[in-house]
Design a protein around this nucleic acid. Structure first.
Lengths: 146, 146
DNA sequence: GCACATCCTTGAGGATGTCAACGATTGATC
DNA sequence: GATCAATCGTTGACATCCTCAAGGATGTGC
């Protein structure tokens, strides 16, 4: 990068811009780590939610991952065809379908999560442990306000 | 959001996920604020860099915004057709083209930047001024490591 | 001069985002 | 308990965006 840029970074006052750029770096690292496991960031995220305890519906997943419900359909379609998740009927609402990871899905998720976390260390390398905790806490309040 | 989710958020240990979700909220707000000015987040970012002092080439812009150079081509094409930026030859490198905002481009940028910042306040509402500074500082180190 | 890298550009193909509809089901209101 | 609006999953259409590979023009190292 040009040296005069280093001393006077345009847009660096915009939290939105810094967020976007930090996210881009993080995304690239995750994408890289997931390739070997046959997952993309999106499908990994859905798989992770399916492997969670919460028994989320597709609608829940869409809201949680900030996606359109129709995108979740094709993501779950793909994971289901690969035997990684199943659609189970919601006992309380027969319109909804709960997405649950299969045993194989859980295994893949564990392996992929390990790879993502290892790679994440590189992205977070500029921050020490205290700063990382602080960042997580601040981002949590932004990501889940109220 | 389901109450049991609030108490045990999946993926909330992943800084990458929190970053992505916070960024999604921020992007949505910016997109919303920019619509009235006929800009998208991407074109606004390019315009902002063109309005900066640094006289960046398209390659610089691509790197700075984490975009493929070919995306910058069409973004600049669009802004140029609308009379907001011009492509000037780089005196030191005749391959490169410096993207510079026109007077009209600068005016639009100022108005759009104001709208973005106002809207950003809503996104940042969960954080007080000290936290915002702290967040910006942490993100800066992630976004521009070294 | 020659080989190789870099910058902009074009184009193609796939992924993603957005939106409007639809059947099935639910919840609220009368 | 009948009706009407809202919600959930799904499909399809369309625009945007990402990624990659090529090519002409220019720069850099030898």
């Amino acid at each position: 990068m040009k040296s005069e840029l280093r001393t006077h970074l345009p847009l660096s006052g915009d939290t939105a811009f810094l967020l976007a750029r930090a996210n881009a770096r993080s995304l690239a690292a995750a994408h890289d780590a997931l390739g070997a496991h046959g997952l993309r960031v999106r499908s990994y995220s859905v798989l992770a939610l399916a492997a969670a305890e919460a028994r989320l519906s597709q609608r829940d997943i869409a809201e949680y991952l900030w996606l359109d419900p129709s995108q979740v359909v094709s993501l779950v379609d793909d994971l289901q065809q690969r035997g990684l998740v199943t659609r189970e009927p919601d006992e309380n609402d027969r319109r909804a379908k709960v997405v649950v990871a299969t045993d194989e899905g859980r295994r893949l998720h564990r392996a992929a999560a390990r790879a993502v976390r290892e790679r994440e260390q590189e992205t977070l390398e500029p921050l020490d442990e205290t700063d990382r905790d602080r960042l997580r806490e601040l981002l949590m309040r932004l990501a889940f306000p109220l």
